[in-house]
Write a protein that binds this DNA or RNA. Structure first.
Lengths: 322, 322
DNA sequence: ATATAGAATTGTAGCGCTACAAAAATTTGT
DNA sequence: ACAAATTTTTGTAGCGCTACAATTCTATAT
């Protein structure tokens, strides 16, 4: 900074102001300083700045995986909102609770302005660590017991809406696919809602299959086969993701079953593949980018401060498959 | 730190050593300090540490997108190697050259130990900024003109191998799909290699179609149709990614064309979908995790120092589709 | 019991920056 | 032209930590 100041003929303090509070410096001076800085390749040391000022302009997000594209829109929303508020977003990938804990420690070490978590299994000490740190935290897809505050759409309502839609279409033997491992927590609200609606319609709510993880087409095929072994007259299935639903549709085609003629297949998540597929998938669109935006607004303290999670919209996308 | 030191009855310096050089502290002392730190939720301020020590244990990676899963294995490799070397990995997503430039500025501001870029269009000032900064840089999938040093498999050799394979299978009218926009640079080596082999075999190398971006199934279908309009006797196509290839396969099925009977379809990248699909896709497996590991080894200075890019392995995966 | 090598622990100074208040320069009003 | 109001610029002190050297403690040999 000293070098830039000398080269530009101003004091170090003016250089600092140019980067941190451009408005406080006259345009002419600022341009001269910025020019010299660009020539010398000077980028302010954020660490020193953070240390001196005590506040950071970086938000950290921990993602459970980038194995599939499900977090693309979420991250886009985070990034867009962070940028709009003059912050930067850094992400860390953590596939296990232990890795997540370690990622949070790193983010805390960096003294980021806020941390965006994704709901799922967490290390038991995580909540306490974050509370003691005093860092702003938000848990996306989190509900009432979220670490920090939750941001999510109403998963239960979405699940009920989708179930009701299938029933309204005349489906009677509806199978539900439950996810246990991995990001299981993000799915837990769906089953009770499904059961509730099925019960209310006087239908059997016991056609439930549990799969470990919801990754890939393979599980879709497997699920379909298991369901058909369980209930040959199955006329609809509710899949945990569009990817699994796509796998199920492929398997239907292989077996000569018509979708939606013989079996209705519903997905979840409004993935690209669901739009491209023929038949296109009926699904729940979670507008994950709004979850990301909501998360940032909470972290930066400009969200409406109310009890419980911040609710974002969702939509039932009725397409060809169900 | 002061608080921890007092609570544990040691000097601040010992607390510092516990976190930074655990071996320098007697096990008993260390445990006592760590226990207090855990209770109080103390996490060392990396910024202050960096400022004082002048070195960081964080590596930054800039990813062009997480829209599809293609970087999953790459990031896994980066992460694994970084962790093995006692470093942390943070990632930034940047979808345009401008965003990438800004991401690099942030990483530079954080004074990370090294920056891993992905080959593609860069902002013109990026190279100079990084050179002036003196930060270690590596460009994954980068070649001779990489910013910093390149790490990549031999894309040209892979393209030649795949082309030769198709020719050896008796294919004569082979279409090649070229990508222009987006991460185009990562694809540029493929076409010349394709042409070379086609020419060497006395075949026409002019069945080339250019698409803007290689995202999604939709483009696969479109490409197939355009190719067939161009050359009805087409007997093979080389797609830029497995996803596009899958889209082409779907379209073949829709049109009643047999794969590989009527048309051979080759993908690239060894994506999950290529293994799951029926017919499974013949593809190039790039072992992206090794690219990630190589990138970290270069950044941390323990890669064999030679001229040109660090070469990682690749494999021609011959499966059902070609 | 004492000397000595080695391990463990501890002060000191300073990393690069910014908050804050004070000083200097500029603009505005009369 | 001069004072007052406003804008722009500038020192000073200190953020939390670690390198390094100096000091204290522990284990071993004589």
């Amino acid at each position: 900074m000293q070098d830039i100041a000398e080269a530009a003929g101003v004091s170090p303090m003016t250089v600092s102001n140019c980067f941190r509070y451009p408005d406080r410096v006259r345009a002419k001076t600022r341009e001269a300083v910025m020019k010299v800085a660009a020539e010398l390749g000077y980028v302010p040391n954020m660490s020193a700045g953070l240390l001196a000022a005590g506040t950071s302009r970086v938000i950290g997000a921990v993602l459970p995986s980038i194995r599939n594209s499900s977090f693309y829109r979420y991250v886009a929303g985070l990034r867009q909102a962070a940028t709009a508020e003059g912050h930067e977003l850094i992400t860390m990938i953590a596939e296990t609770p232990e890795e997540e804990f370690s990622a949070v420690q790193t983010l805390l070490g960096l003294r980021v302005a806020g941390i965006a978590l994704v709901a799922g299994p967490h290390a038991p000490e995580l909540r306490q660590l974050l509370e003691l740190s005093g860092t702003a935290v938000v848990e996306s897809w989190g509900g009432d017991k979220a670490i920090g505050r939750g941001v999510s759409y109403d998963v239960g309502a979405a699940s009920r809406a989708l179930t009701r839609h299938l029933i309204a279409q005349g489906r009677r033997r509806i199978g539900f696919v439950q996810v246990s491992g991995g990001g299981g927590h993000r799915y837990t609200m769906r089953l009770p809602a499904f059961r509730q609606e099925m019960f209310a319609a006087g239908l059997s709510d016991s056609l439930v299959l549990t799969v470990r993880a919801a990754d890939g087409f393979g599980s879709g095929a497997q699920i379909l086969n298991e369901f058909l072994a369980l209930e040959p007259k199955l006329d609809a299935i509710l899949c945990p993701t569009d990817v699994v639903a796509a796998g199920a549709v492929f398997e239907c085609q292989r077996r000569g079953l018509e979708v939606p003629g013989d079996i209705a297949v519903a997905g979840w998540g409004d993935y690209d593949i669901g739009r491209q597929l023929s038949p296109s998938l009926t699904t729940i669109a979670p507008f994950s980018d709004e979850i990301g935006q909501g998360a940032v607004s909470i972290l930066l303290g400009d969200a409406p401060p109310s009890e419980g999670p911040l609710l974002t919209p969702y939509a039932l996308e009725i397409r060809e498959s169900a």
